[in-house]
Design a protein around this nucleic acid. Structure first.
Lengths: 163, 163
DNA sequence: GTGTGATAGTTGAGATATCAACTATCTTTC
DNA sequence: GAAAGATAGTTGATATCTCAACTATCACAC
């Protein structure tokens, strides 16, 4: 069953699930991005970055921690922060204790932008995700995506290195 | 509960699920993309495009249908196909019956590239998704993402236009 | 058959992302 | 305390994506 040339192909049910995952994902992020573009002054990525900063003490976090939390490459974060700094949403300052380090801090303007965008963002997430699912489905989705995330991270981190 | 200034914020459980969804997704696609980059000659996007073509009669499909199926903008598909055409993976030809239309056809070289990439792709999808979940979880994920995709599409299509 | 609005696809400019190379600092080891 | 390697972050060239404008064709009304 489902094995040709030593390759374990996906069966029909697995195929269907995988396709739904791909397409559903693409449509969801397209719609959420469109909602941000249409109503809000922050893109989804900028918004997420500011949310993460808003949860840090003094609204400040090291670039590397920020990159890890947002699942962004260092380089991409550097460019993104440079642009956002240009708009006055965040500012950079040297990290204390490690002269290589750079802290990223949300400015008051950034905070104001976050507060202004939050209602529209939450409405969109509700409309496109939370309200679309039964409560137990949302819980299941979270649990399942958690497992997927853990597996992906361990592959990226290079855990399970061959002996 | 959870309502301030008329905004329905997410409760803790909803927040957790939403975060898991965001982060799990980002990690998953990062890992799958990395697997393609490392082992295969086709990016995930190129591979998906060729898969879709491979399922069409004569390995040929109209640009617009291809764009819809892959959830890509027309413009993005044009650029992608131009690049892939440059590599000899697909070719363009006029659609018959509608002189505006353009067909995209997978070449033999494209088919060979697809066949060569398929085992590695499927292995990665197994490792990062299918094998990570229980069968019922995979089924649930497919079902849930299907619902999300439908909701997102109806928003994008502009259904439910206000009276 | 002419005008009007929709649809198919492309184009090019500007925005964003990726990748490899680079500087600077830190850490470890001897 | 000097050398070697790891870590933090940036840089710039290139690749890719996005957005609005554009051409061409089609469909439909009149």
């Amino acid at each position: 069953m489902g094995e040709t040339n030593g390759v374990h192909w996906l069966d029909d049910g697995q195929q269907t699930a995988w396709r739904s995952f791909l397409v559903g994902n693409a449509r969801f992020f397209e719609a959420l991005g469109a909602a941000h573009d249409a109503e809000l002054d922050l893109s989804l990525g900028e918004y997420t970055l500011l949310v993460q900063l808003s949860e840090q003490p003094d609204r400040t976090q090291r670039m590397s921690a920020l990159a890890d939390g947002l699942v962004l490459s260092r380089s991409r974060l550097t460019h993104t922060v440079t642009r956002m700094e240009g708009r006055g949403l965040v500012s950079r300052c040297p990290a204390d204790g490690d002269r290589r380090g750079v802290n990223c801090r949300m400015t008051d303007l950034g905070h104001a932008a976050l507060v202004a965008a939050a209602p529209g963002h939450v409405r969109a997430v509700r409309r496109l995700l939370v309200d679309v699912l039964e409560p137990d489905e949302l819980e299941a989705l979270g649990r399942i995506m958690g497992k997927i995330g853990v597996a992906a991270r361990s592959e990226l981190t290079g855990a399970a290195r061959d002996c």
